[in-house]
């Protein structure tokens, strides 16, 4: 009899359940909320600004110009024979997406503590919505890249599409999930140890220099290349450049390495996040 009745409960709240107990069905039930959060993010960012969505373009263009001057002309770092604007822009937009996913999800708990302290909904919805709204921003900037790309193509510059183009969606997903995974880990840890907040600030910037954004992989001396190889982001960025610009070093082992890293980081992130979300209100 008691077994029959326990089955009928819609909801059972218990202390710290098993690590692997992530309620994906519930997240699916709240999918409307996810899209409403995305809408909120996209709609409200540039409210009451004169330029509005044009700001989406200003940031990558300005960054590109600075990189051309500083790294291209002053430092004279070669770009594998690819026109500098294309080389930097491709790196910037894919990097932007990663850092957006990472930074925006890494403060999920601290930023939303008021809301989380009042109502329950699957907390994972919040970081997921950041990843999706980041994707929209990415596509807008990607459009900018395409425009610049077409300009150079018409101009007759020898850039060529690679067969790796088919892998581009996969690269984007990897970037998103890697950023999300790291973000989930960091937001879970910062609820208790605020030290990490400071680490993130400059950590992401430093990480960019450990990724072939402003330099091509081929320019790295053999000794250091070993280190860059261990950065799972390197292979994704190189693959992205290879797909559009025909220059870049992507190996199967590298891609496999990135994929496995992403999977591990994501799973660890979700598990830690899931454990933290239940009681973070008490410790935040």
């Amino acid at each position: 009899m008691s077994k029959v009745t326990t089955k009928k409960w819609d909801l059972i709240i218990e202390p710290q359940q098993g690590l692997l107990d992530v309620n994906f069905k519930e997240i699916w039930n709240y999918r409307d909320l996810l899209f409403l959060f995305v809408k909120r993010d996209v709609v409200t960012v540039y409210k009451q600004t004169v330029l509005g969505p044009i700001w989406f373009f200003v940031q990558p263009i300005m960054t590109m110009l600075v990189y051309i001057v500083v790294f291209g002309n002053i430092a004279g770092i070669p770009t594998d024979g690819i026109p500098k604007p294309l080389f930097y822009l491709s790196g910037i937009i894919i990097w932007n997406y990663f850092s957006e996913c990472f930074l925006k999800t890494s403060d999920t708990f601290t930023v939303n503590q008021d809301m989380f302290g009042k109502v329950y909904f699957p907390r994972l919805i919040m970081p997921l919505s950041k990843v999706v709204s980041g994707l929209i921003k990415f596509f807008i900037q990607f459009f900018l890249f395409i425009v610049v790309y077409l300009y150079f193509l018409v101009d007759g510059v020898p850039v060529q599409l690679g067969v790796e183009l088919l892998l581009v969606p996969y690269f984007i997903v990897l970037m998103a999930l890697l950023g999300l995974g790291f973000g989930l880990i960091f937001t879970s840890m910062t609820t208790k140890y605020r030290d990490l907040k400071f680490l993130i600030q400059f950590g992401v910037q430093l990480l960019m220099y450990a990724t072939p954004i402003i330099y091509p992989m081929s320019e790295i001396p053999e000794k250091i290349r070993y280190f860059i190889f261990f950065n799972p982001l390197s292979h994704i960025v190189e693959g992205f450049k290879l797909a559009f610009l025909g220059q870049g070093s992507l190996t199967t082992s590298g891609l496999l390495y990135s994929s496995v890293c992403t999977l591990i980081v994501l799973i660890v992130g979700i598990l830690i996040f899931n454990k933290t979300e239940k009681t973070f209100v008490d410790t935040v």
């Binding site: 009928k8 909801l11 059972i12 218990e14 989380f116 109502v119 239940k278 009681t279 008490d282």
Partner: peptide, 14 residues
């Protein structure tokens, strides 16, 4: 209301 989790025990609801 599930804002935070209990230390021990359970709540069951329909």
């Amino acid at each position: 209301s599930r804002v935070t989790a209990p230390t021990t025990g359970s709540i069951k609801a329909r």
